[in-house]
């Protein structure tokens, strides 16, 4: 077992549910404070101090929700697929649990991205839904999340469910660039040179700095939500072990 020394020590410690439970417990407050500070500061900055866009006016302020949500929904899928792959290759239970915790969060974040995109479309395009390339790609990403959640809940055995969803997530990961490319191409074919929501020429710094704050805030929020779910998952699967029993009774 000790012959593979090329991985850092924390990688093996991560495999221990108990160690993982302890370390996430210590990290949680920091991420929670960071998330609250960043999100509140970013939202106030975005709503009050950032200048209105000369073309779209104040509806432009939706970008501070829409873009971070879109980025996070994609990153979350990446994390889920990578964690699933680690779980498949190294048979690491914690990685499986991380992958399982990611799916519902990613799905809700994808909904947020879709909803804000639709709301933004109303003042910009005059209709609640436009088959814009980005929105369509996000919709398909949302479908991929739904498939993963459905598969995971259909299989009763926790280990089989984790492995099956990992395979599906990896297949999806290979497909995402292809889907994205084909949807972009399809969009240019059907509606040439429409005004896209988020593709803008150089944004002045008073606009993109709050955006950056919001993106980091969303990542911190994701870390908190993921760790909370992960800890639940750990307790539930390790409920027969003595340390969880002590945790519950103590």
């Amino acid at each position: 077992m000790a012959d593979k020394k090329w991985m850092p020590r924390w990688f093996y410690q991560l495999a221990s549910p108990r160690w993982c439970y302890d370390i996430t417990g210590k990290l949680l407050p920091f991420f929670a404070i960071a998330a609250v500070v960043m999100l509140v500061a970013g939202a106030v900055w975005a709503l009050v101090f950032a200048p209105a866009d000369y073309q779209q006016g104040n509806s432009f302020r939706i970008i501070y929700i829409h873009v971070p949500a879109s980025i996070l929904a994609q990153s979350c899928y990446m994390l889920m697929a990578v964690a699933g792959a680690i779980g498949l290759i190294w048979k690491m239970k914690v990685a499986d649990m991380v992958a399982k915790s990611c799916a519902p969060i990613g799905a809700t974040i994808a909904i947020l991205s879709l909803a804000t995109g639709a709301i933004w479309g109303k003042p910009t395009w005059g209709s609640w839904w436009v088959w814009d390339a980005r929105l369509t790609s996000m919709l398909i990403l949302f479908f991929l999340y739904l498939g993963i959640i459905a598969l995971n809940s259909a299989i009763e055995n926790a280990q089989t469910a984790a492995q099956s969803t990992a395979v599906l997530a990896l297949v999806g990961l290979v497909n995402i660039p292809i889907i994205k490319y084909s949807v972009d191409w399809w969009n240019t074919l059907h509606q040439p040179a429409t005004f896209t929501l988020t593709e803008r020429p150089a944004m002045p710094s008073e606009m993109w700095v709050p955006l950056l704050v919001m993106v980091i805030g969303f990542y911190c929020f994701f870390a908190v939500a993921m760790m909370l779910r992960l800890r639940n998952e750990i307790i539930q699967r390790e409920r027969r072990s003595s340390w969880v029993r002590d945790l519950i009774t103590g």
Partner: peptide
């Protein structure tokens, strides 16, 4: 919000709901 108040506030409200529910649920 320059006539776009409904859209902007609706977006931020949905964001708040999603974030809070993702914390409260677990």
């Amino acid at each position: 919000m320059g006539g776009h108040g409904l859209y902007v506030w609706l977006s931020y409200a949905i964001a708040l709901v999603v974030i809070v529910s993702n914390i409260v649920n677990p």
